[in-house]
């Protein structure tokens, strides 16, 4: 009697066991929310503004050794105090990219005071970030503050 024979007949010849539709990347499984994936695949407002322009404030936060660097730039209308344009570039994980992409979306069209009211917890909630990714949202909040701080310094407001 060969108990295994029936099972072996349907066994794929060259792609065994892992062909179950599930995928594990890296050492730990990571689940990303749909919104994080969307921002990762279609990041909003990627780009660079002229950092030497008086209208532009630049925030560069994080460090390469830590695995996260965000650069967020804003072009502000001095009269209305409205952020007319926001751009970002981020080196970091998907959640860091999504947090900064979301931040540019949220601050565009807002006054700088209004933009400063954005809290990292708002980003956590919107993107459903897990606890290990909260630092990404903190970095995005820091980037907003740094960009606004830079603009204010340039424009004699601080």
């Amino acid at each position: 009697m060969r108990a295994g024979a029936a099972g072996l007949a349907v066994w794929p010849r060259w792609r065994p066991v892992h062909d179950n539709g599930e995928l594990k990347s890296g050492e730990t499984t990571m689940a990303y929310s749909e919104k994080v994936v969307d921002h990762y695949n279609n990041p909003r407002n990627v780009g660079t503004l002229d950092k030497n322009s008086a209208e532009v404030g630049t925030g560069l936060v994080g460090a390469p050794e830590c695995g996260d660097v965000m650069r967020l730039q804003i072009r502000v209308n001095a009269e209305t105090q409205v952020i007319e344009e926001a751009k970002f570039k981020t080196f970091g994980c998907g959640s860091a990219i999504a947090s900064s992409s979301l931040a540019t979306e949220w601050i565009q069209g807002r006054t700088i005071d209004d933009a400063l009211s954005i809290k990292n917890t708002d980003i956590v909630k919107e993107l459903s970030l897990p606890p290990v990714k909260i630092h990404c949202s903190v970095l995005a909040e820091d980037a907003i503050r740094a960009a606004i701080g830079d603009w204010r310094k340039k424009n004699g407001a601080e």
Binding site: H18, L23, K24, S25, G26, E27, T28, M30, Y32, V37, Y40, G67, D68, F91, G92, C93, G94, A96, I97
Partner: peptide, 26 residues
């Protein structure tokens, strides 16, 4: 270089490889 490992893995979600990135470790 200049690309973070976990974000790279995220983009290759139909390929199973590993990263030495901090984000993939406990």
């Amino acid at each position: 270089v200049y690309v973070e490992g976990e974000s790279l893995l995220m983009g290759m979600n139909d390929v199973a490889v590993s990263s030495g990135s901090a984000c993939t470790s406990a």
